[in-house]
Amino acid sequence: MTDFMTFSLVPLTVAVIISMTCALLGNFLVLRRQSLIGDAISHVALPGIVVSFLLTGMLASSAMMLGAGASALVTVAMIELIRRLGRVEGSAAMGVVFTSLFAVGVLLLEWHGATGVHLDVEHALYGNLESLIWFEGTGPAAFFDPVALADLPPQLGRAAWVGLAVVVFVVVFRRHLILGSFDPDFAASVRARPALIDLLLVTMVAVAAIAAFEAVGSIIVIAMFICPAAAARLMTNRLAAQVAWSQLFALVSAVLGYLLAGHGPGWLGFDASLSAAGMIATLAGLILGAACVAGPRRHRIGVAREA
């Protein structure tokens, strides 16, 4: 129990919060056929973080968040620019932008040799969930001890704030989001500001991706933006139910993935553990696979188009 509180409680909670937050936003990305934007933004966080490290010379998380946020905005602008000037399809523009910017980030990282500090490509991809240790979390009493609570890893608080902000955003703007996803022209005609809502959604995606990136790495973020929502779409034809399913899938992936990564190899007789982020993302993918095979709504409607 003490071990669990010290070593597992915080990483597990962070994984659950971030998975559910990304999955919530993912619902709207999937409906808008924009799933790739989450992928793009979480990759581009790397060059942003590296540049802010090179500029400030430190790994302060506020500077890193700022750098990553700025690069997310640059990405969105570049995608839009390439789409218009290059006359290419939106997803192609995204693919070009995020792979090249991520590559730039890798080069910057190597060239500068910043690997001495706690910043490397591996970290960017898999995060470092297992490092979120709560040293003072030695027993249930710690929940009421201000000193122990102050020792909680800061990533937990940040994940919680971002999660809360995303939930508020989705609840307040749910009609805008639905209308803008289903029928943007009609949305504009009733002044639901679809373009502004689009931008807000991408901003929330960037905020969630960056907060998640720092704690859990980009693999889990990308998986959670797409897999739970896409799997949920195959379970139901009702949007509210789809959101509920996506949250359940994200929760199950996070909890089960974390436990399996830590204990799975032990159960099989190996004295090792696997990357929690990797396992969580894998489980999310497996759930999507299962939904593709067995989801009740996997056959899109096939009735006659004409009455």
Partner: peptide, 10 residues
């Protein structure tokens, strides 16, 4: 034809 009729809505 300007909207996606596969959208999860009644």
């Amino acid at each position: 034809s300007s909207v996606d009729w596969d959208f999860p809505a009644r």
